[in-house]
């Protein structure tokens, strides 16, 4: 039982981690709170669904397309909405993505209806029994995707010129401009990548989730607390924060009471805000 709960907690954690990293990236670079990150995930789920509907492709086969589409979608959103909001007052910068999230949710209700959808007949399915632990292959897809995406993100941010430019911009925008980095481009790419991460996550989630247009909202609170836990702006911290959230979610739910798990999460949020406002890994 314990191992099962641990495994499930880590699985859940990978979803929260993916969300949290997207939020942390956008916050770190441009100080925008990406409330719409969960909705991006939702949009990715529907893109996967529609690709499957039209071509019969498995979510795994569709994933590269979904990631690229979401990256471009992110860039479009940045250019049409975020870039303009950044020129406006701080309050509208904070709230613009909130409004965007609502537009996406309601837009999807108009486009696809409010019913629950799922992608049928997945390529990988079933359960592996490892002793007392039942490992769902569908959830494995999610775990592997999350790990690969995290790995790629770290490689990109630390090893590539563009990644370093984004980091430099997030650490000091003025200096980044002076060494020749086009900071507007860095912002745009960062926002696109954040959407692409949600793309990978949402696509993989269709493996083990049923979804409807408002699914993103429920995940957001966990994503945000994970970011607070990890320290705003630190992508590695956000990943660990996400994993911790998954563990808390499952352990309080299973061993204490299901009713306590949201309380536990909220209490932890308050504790962080009170005693460690910069997060476990923030400086």
């Amino acid at each position: 039982m314990f191992l099962q709960v641990l495994y499930e907690g880590l699985t859940m954690g990978t979803i929260y981690a993916l969300l949290a990293m997207g939020i942390a990236l956008v916050w770190g670079v441009m100080n925008i709170l990406s409330f719409s990150q969960g909705e991006f995930m939702m949009v990715a789920m529907y893109i996967t669904f529609f690709i499957n509907l039209a071509t019969g492709w498995d979510p795994l086969a569709a994933m590269p397309i979904v990631i690229v589409t979401m990256f471009l979608f992110g860039i479009l959103i940045y250019r049409t909405i975020i870039a303009r909001a950044l020129k406006g007052p701080v309050l509208s910068q904070r709230l613009v993505t909130f409004a965007l999230g609502m537009v996406l949710t309601n837009g999807m209700i108009l486009l696809a209806g409010g019913q629950t959808k799922s992608v049928p007949d997945k390529l990988i399915s079933g359960t592996i029994s490892l002793g007392s632990v039942a490992i769902s292959k569908e959830k494995m897809v999610l775990v592997v995707t999350s790990i690969v995406v995290t790995g790629l993100l770290f490689w990109f941010m630390n090893r590539t010129k563009m990644g370093k430019a984004i980091r430099a911009t997030s650490q000091d925008k003025e200096a980044a401009g002076l060494v020749g980095i086009n900071t507007q481009t860095a912002y745009m790419i960062a926002f696109g990548i954040s959407a692409a991460i949600a793309g990978a996550g949402g696509c993989a989630m269709t493996y083990s989730y049923y979804f409807m247009p408002n699914i993103g909202t429920n995940f957001m609170i966990f994503g945000f607390i994970a970011v607070c836990l990890g320290g705003f702006g630190s992508i590695g911290g956000a990943f660990i924060g996400g994993m911790i959230m998954g563990i808390i979610d499952l352990f309080t739910g299973t061993y204490l009471s299901v009713s306590y798990k949201y309380m536990a999460v909220s209490v932890i949020f308050l504790l962080i805000v009170t005693f460690k406002p910069k997060g476990l890994f923030g400086r």
């Binding site: 499930e8 979610d249 309080t252 299901v258 949201y262």
Partner: peptide, 20 residues
């Protein structure tokens, strides 16, 4: 007797409890 949150992102703990 399990009460779950209707905005739950997952119901894994609930199912594990029921299974138990």
């Amino acid at each position: 007797n399990i009460a779950y949150n209707k905005d739950a992102t997952n119901v894994t703990s609930e199912v594990l409890r029921a299974k138990q």
